[in-house]
Amino acid sequence: MLPVLLTVLIVFLNLGGVASILLEFGHGERWPALNSLVLLVALDAVGFWLLRRLREPG
């Protein structure tokens, strides 16, 4: 059950992050958009690492 919830959380995180990045680029705010992109990639990396750890046996 926990891996499913984590997967849903990662999906919603990505949807919100992409929307934020697109809106910031649309307003001409390049540095905040790049900061959001870096934060999104970092949170994705942590989320996928946790998901892999949850799915490993033992």
Results as ranks from 00 to 15, higher is better:
1 M>L: 09
1 M>E: 04
1 M>C: 03
1 M>Q: 02
2 L>T: 13
2 L>R: 15
2 L>M: 14
3 P>F: 03
3 P>G: 04
3 P>M: 04
4 V>Q: 14
5 L>A: 10
5 L>S: 12
7 T>V: 05
7 T>Y: 01
8 V>K: 11
8 V>A: 13
8 V>S: 07
9 L>M: 07
10 I>S: 03
10 I>D: 00
10 I>N: 03
10 I>T: 00
10 I>V: 11
11 V>A: 08
11 V>G: 00
11 V>T: 06
12 F>N: 06
12 F>R: 12
13 L>Y: 02
14 N>C: 13
14 N>D: 09
15 L>I: 15
15 L>A: 14
17 G>Y: 03
17 G>N: 05
17 G>M: 06
17 G>P: 03
17 G>V: 00
18 V>R: 12
18 V>P: 04
18 V>W: 10
19 A>M: 07
20 S>D: 09
20 S>N: 14
20 S>P: 01
21 I>Q: 01
21 I>F: 01
21 I>S: 01
22 L>W: 04
23 L>E: 07
24 E>I: 00
24 E>M: 05
24 E>H: 06
25 F>I: 12
25 F>C: 06
25 F>R: 09
26 G>R: 08
26 G>A: 11
26 G>T: 02
26 G>E: 04
26 G>N: 06
26 G>H: 03
28 G>V: 12
28 G>Y: 05
29 E>S: 13
29 E>Q: 14
30 R>K: 13
31 W>L: 15
31 W>N: 11
31 W>A: 12
32 P>M: 08
32 P>R: 08
33 A>D: 02
33 A>R: 07
33 A>M: 07
33 A>K: 07
33 A>E: 02
33 A>L: 07
34 L>R: 15
34 L>F: 11
35 N>Q: 13
35 N>M: 15
35 N>Y: 10
36 S>Y: 02
36 S>R: 08
36 S>N: 13
36 S>M: 06
37 L>C: 12
37 L>M: 10
37 L>Q: 11
38 V>Q: 05
38 V>F: 14
38 V>A: 15
39 L>C: 10
39 L>M: 13
40 L>M: 15
40 L>I: 00
41 V>L: 10
41 V>G: 03
41 V>H: 05
43 L>C: 08
43 L>V: 05
44 D>Q: 08
44 D>H: 04
44 D>L: 08
45 A>E: 04
45 A>Y: 03
45 A>K: 00
46 V>P: 00
46 V>W: 00
47 G>R: 07
47 G>I: 08
47 G>N: 06
48 F>K: 11
48 F>N: 08
49 W>Q: 06
50 L>K: 04
51 L>M: 02
51 L>W: 01
51 L>P: 00
52 R>T: 11
52 R>W: 14
52 R>E: 06
52 R>Y: 15
53 R>G: 03
53 R>L: 09
53 R>N: 14
55 R>M: 12
55 R>E: 14
55 R>I: 01
55 R>Y: 10
56 E>Q: 11
57 P>S: 06
57 P>W: 15
57 P>E: 10
58 G>N: 04
58 G>S: 09
58 G>T: 04
